[in-house]
């Protein structure tokens, strides 16, 4: 799209200085993440309040599959690394490497969701639903909301994967990769807390 910049547009643009030194996109993503922090913090507050008020609470390893959760943690961590490597390749202007790393990131997202849906299906088979107990309500809600975030991250990454064909040289492209990466890493961080909360405690 860079080629479509008209001179009129260039003139109309204000001086090329962002007041904070951050691009709008990056500032916006961080602000968005701040609100996401509040969202998940609320869910964790809910978890703690309800657990404190509960008369009994299953230990994670009694009801969930720890090896699968452990695998999923590793999957997300690896995907975080590949995401940041995609950023590095973008910086190096290595188009091929970039597409490989971004592709792997998206694929790992599918792996994560696959394992997750397997775990959920196993629970449904033995008739454990969100309505079964407050523990399962929290488990399905929090991992489900996290899963939605994974899907959102994958959609954004997928869109960038497709767009990269056309917009590799666009001046904003790298900012978008960075923003998408920030979101992906945030999703990873959420899982880093979810995993011990539900599986190990």
């Amino acid at each position: 799209m860079g080629g479509r910049m008209t001179t009129a547009a260039a003139v109309a643009a204000p001086p090329s200085e962002f007041r904070t030194g951050l691009t709008n996109a990056k500032l916006g993503v961080w602000l968005f993440l701040a609100s996401e922090v509040m969202l998940f913090a609320t869910l964790f507050t809910t978890y703690i309040v309800l657990r404190l008020g509960a008369s009994e609470w299953p230990r994670g390893w009694e009801v969930l599959n720890v090896p699968l959760g452990f695998t999923n943690t590793l999957v997300l961590i690896v995907s975080s690394v590949t995401m940041v490597m995609a950023y590095a390749k973008c910086w190096d202007r290595d188009y091929k490497g970039f597409r490989i790393y971004l592709g792997v990131t998206i694929a790992l997202g599918f792996v994560f969701l696959g394992i997750k849906s397997f775990e959920w299906a196993a629970k449904f088979r033995v008739h454990h639903f969100p309505s079964t107990s407050i523990y399962y309500a929290l488990y399905f809600t929090m991992t489900g909301l996290h899963g939605l975030h994974v899907i959102c991250g994958m959609i954004v990454n997928g869109a960038l994967f497709v767009l990269s064909k056309k917009e590799w040289d666009h001046p904003l492209f790298m900012g978008r990769i960075e923003g998408s990466g920030l979101f992906w890493h945030f999703v990873d961080i959420v899982w880093i807390f979810l995993f011990p909360t539900f599986y190990l405690l």
Binding site: P14, F18, R19, T20, N24, L27, G28, L31, F32
Partner: peptide, 13 residues
């Protein structure tokens, strides 16, 4: 809110 904050903080004349 994200839009207003980014605009107000980053795009001042």
């Amino acid at each position: 809110a994200i839009n207003f904050l980014t605009t107000g903080i980053n795009m001042r004349a």
